[in-house]
Design a protein around this nucleic acid. Structure first.
Lengths: 377, 377
DNA sequence: TTGTAGGCGTTATCAC
DNA sequence: GTGATAACGCCTACAA
């Protein structure tokens, strides 16, 4: 180990190995090691070891214009969906020697712009955006600057960015099919914000899913949330219940909205699922411990992060290459928040309807799981 | 804005302002601006503005040996307790122009060591540790290296580090007092890991709280968790229930353990709170939505983060100064997981006991809150 | 008040 | 294969 209090520098190593610093640099750098004789390379490596040499990443960055740092911009780390995603991202980045700088926008465009500028100033080598909106000045700017970008969870069209997201249409179609198979016909939708891809595609999945079952997706039974928050879920849930229309089930565009919706049901004295079936999207951590455990659409959070990191690394390290649009398959998880429609309220006997569906084999596309085993751990 | 594709450098600004780069540097740097004439300072600032000049932080770091980066080492971002803490930390750091590098140890000492080394290699200006154990080689090393460190949430003695944590004893004493006032006498404890300060001090709070009420903290009613996980809570809960001993209430050293304990109750067919009162610690996000909503001990998560950041900034920017040990006050939050002991099981009528307490004014120290208003949002 | 010079630690580009 | 040199962009004694 280095005895002096100043950490060993490349010069020190070079001196100890009796070579020029440039040679030491070559010997220590995997990609240039072959330029130097095996013997001296050995000597240098040894000296480095002995002195406890650690390359100074700042100096290296200055020279190579690579910070080995990635900017990750998300709406809010407090949303339980993001921690596992971020961990996947960080773990995969770490394998490549990169670290993440996390920024929260709180869905504020100004904050997002600000974070982007700050991170650019810090010379990050690329960005992962989990905040894309359909029209986004920041993405525009990123495209112009030709900085490597990957979109995660949310997508945007018209940009030359790779992306990883979930097949939202399929997920919501499966959710609707599940409700339909339980006999529900009057199904409401708390739609996500329509300036965000997930909001749009889940809305589309809802309409398609209804249509596929011969049900009508009445606009009177759709309320649009301004954001994916519990508060908005509460507001929209209230509005749906006020409008009434004999709803027996609600498809929320994500779990946070579903949680808010639970609150609205409570206020009305309605119990879930007997009084109203509710289904969410994301299967975020702890959502299986609510009262009742929420039926929802799951996707692999951690993998969303790792895949995003991999796509970005391809861009950052590999240079040019095809833009990739990656979708992860969702999976319906049925829990306690959905049940057959009460026989007096539905358009027929739920159980027999259920049987009929099962017989005709019209089960929803997409995998289906129950997780009784998991729900108590 | 800069027209060339290469970002403007200090030289460019100097050239545009017709001064020497050194002068430009002085003019742009707040702390040296007074060394330059107001007129030229003006000219330089203007030129910088016009060229869209952004100082290169990498170059600056190389020169000043300051990365304006802080290493934050936590057990696991997936623990819902940490996101709000991390946000507080990041927000406060951002005010000082610093950013955080987050590292997760998963309670693995090797990973912690590794993260510490990686971050040191990246020349972070300081560390926040939320992973301190009573005997910690990494902290030892940090102390030797004289790198600024602040301990957060968990503390360790014998190190010259400032710390922010919660008055754990007081919190648990309040929890015990609450249970006692409900008539509980045979109270069990799922203790946290005893190599961590929170585990020890909450255990101590439990013993003291029992004693203060004239109750016995029987070791037979205490089980020690190996970590703050749901799994360990489940295991310890099972063990407590197997041992039996006529428990009517359980104090868990944190919310995760309490959640696991819920699972153990389920297995036994016990309902909470009638069959068993349970109380946790942390009031982590979403814990108020469990079935039943968990009574727990709350502390301000976000502020824990901001205070840690402030303490670290004092060290990093201010240099020497007194070590500060800061405690945040906890607050008991009573929800649906605690109720009076059933009259046939307890050592007397719960309600009358409750009344007696109320009359004699022996309420627990520490603030007490119920959050009916909050629980449904 | 401003300019000069040197260096932070590394690597790219020449020569030899 | 190795050495010399310069440069990445900035800051700061020191000199003028």
């Amino acid at each position: 180990m280095g005895k002096s209090d100043r950490p060993a520098t490349l010069r020190d190593v070079a001196a100890a190995a009796r070579v020029h610093p440039a040679t030491a640099s070559r010997a220590l750098n995997p990609s240039t090691r072959l330029l130097v004789s095996e013997e001296t390379a050995q000597r240098v490596t040894e000296a480095a070891e002995r002195l406890g040499y650690r390359p100074n990443p700042v100096a290296r960055s200055l020279r190579t214009r690579r910070s080995h740092t990635i900017g990750v911009i998300i709406p809010d780390l407090n949303n339980p969906l993001f921690p596992p995603i971020v961990r996947g991202l960080e773990d995969r980045l770490a394998e490549h020697g990169y670290v993440a700088l996390i920024g929260n926008t709180d869905a504020d465009e100004r904050r997002e712009r600000n974070l982007f500028d700050q991170m650019r100033a810090r010379h990050v080598d690329g960005f992962v955006f989990a905040t894309a909106t359909l029209q986004s000045p920041v993405l525009e700017e990123a495209a112009e600057a030709e900085v490597p970008v990957v979109l995660m969870n949310r997508t945007a069209q018209g940009y030359p960015f790779s992306s990883v997201s979930v097949d939202n249409e399929q997920g919501v179609r499966a959710a609707v099919a599940h409700l339909a198979s339980l006999g529900h016909a009057r199904i409401g939708h708390i739609a996500g914000p329509q300036e965000v891809s997930t909001g749009v595609s889940r809305y589309r999945g809802f309409r398609d899913g209804m249509e596929a079952r011969g049900l009508t997706a009445d606009e009177g039974r759709i309320v649009y949330a301004g954001g994916y928050s519990i508060e908005e879920g509460l507001r929209c849930g209230r509005e749906l219940l006020e409008r009434d229309g004999g709803l027996t089930a609600i498809v929320a565009a994500n779990d946070m909205l579903a949680v808010g919706c639970y609150g609205a049901l409570d206020e009305r004295g309605l119990t879930c699922p007997d009084g109203m079936s509710v289904i969410g999207f994301n299967d975020m951590p702890f959502i299986d411990r609510l009262r009742p455990p929420l039926s929802t659409v799951r996707f692999p959070h951690y993998q969303l992060g790792t895949e995003a990191a991999t796509l970005l690394m391809e861009r950052v390290e590999g240079g040019e290459g095809p833009v990739k649009i990656l979708y992860l398959a969702p999976e319906l998880v049925t829990r306690g928040s959905t049940c057959p429609v009460p026989s007096d309220a539905g358009a027929g006997d739920a159980v027999s309807l259920h049987r009929r569906r099962a017989l005709t084999g019209t089960e929803p596309s997409g995998a289906l799981t129950t997780d009784e085993a998991r729900s108590n751990l």
